[in-house]
Simulated assay, not measured.
Amino acid sequence: MTAELRASVAEVRRTSQEARTAIRGVARADVTGTVEYRRLEREVAESFRSGRSGPVARALQERVDRGELTWRQIRVGTADPAATRLYQENQSAFLDEMARVKRDVDEADVAAERAAAERRRERDGGEQPMTILKKRTGRRKDRP
């Protein structure tokens, strides 16, 4: 389970980094007319419509679908204040969830390390490695 969770978090981080890189690129060039942009826009809109991205994103997407505003207006803050606030809250909730997932992964890593250390102690009969070495060689660690 821990490895699966770590892999999922790594995938989220990778995807997040790709999104940040893409957003920086979009800010520098107008790509809204490209086939790739329209495809991504459709995929994001479908995710929002389905509710997979949360109720706030779904509500905002419904307003976009009705023609009340655009995602560009929301992103740059020129949409009505309520829509901008909802968008910022959604982003904040996403970041909070990512922080929670990271804490869970970190805690799972610590637990896994403790379990591995316990297994090593059990395997070695509860003795420290240098004690075992001393018994096997008949020498103390500090003497050749």
Rank of each mutant, 00 (worst) to 15 (best):
A79C: 08
E97H: 10
Y37P: 03
L86W: 10
D124Y: 04
S50P: 12
G125E: 01
G54I: 10
R6P: 03
Q128I: 03
E68T: 15
D142Q: 14
T34I: 08
A45Y: 04
W71N: 06
E11K: 12
S53P: 02
T21G: 03
R39A: 11
V31N: 01
T32N: 10
G51V: 05
V9L: 15
L95R: 15
E122K: 13
A57S: 13
R140C: 00
V110P: 00
G125W: 01
V110M: 06
Q61Y: 05
V64M: 08
R136K: 07
R140E: 05
V26M: 06
T32C: 06
V76D: 13
E4K: 00
D106N: 10
R139F: 14
D142R: 14
P144W: 14
A108L: 13
E41T: 08
F94W: 15
R114E: 13
G125Q: 00
R28D: 07
R103K: 05
E4A: 02
L133V: 09
R120N: 11
D96Y: 06
G77R: 07
G54P: 10
I23F: 09
F48C: 15
R114H: 11
R24P: 00
A57F: 05
L40W: 02
R139W: 05
L40I: 07
G138H: 09
E4R: 01
L133D: 02
R140A: 10
T2K: 03
A82K: 11
E18T: 01
Q73V: 03
L5W: 09
K134L: 05
R58V: 01
V9C: 11
R38C: 06
G33Y: 07
Q88P: 00
R20G: 00
M130I: 03
T15A: 14
A19V: 12
V64R: 08
R42C: 04
E122M: 10
T70G: 09
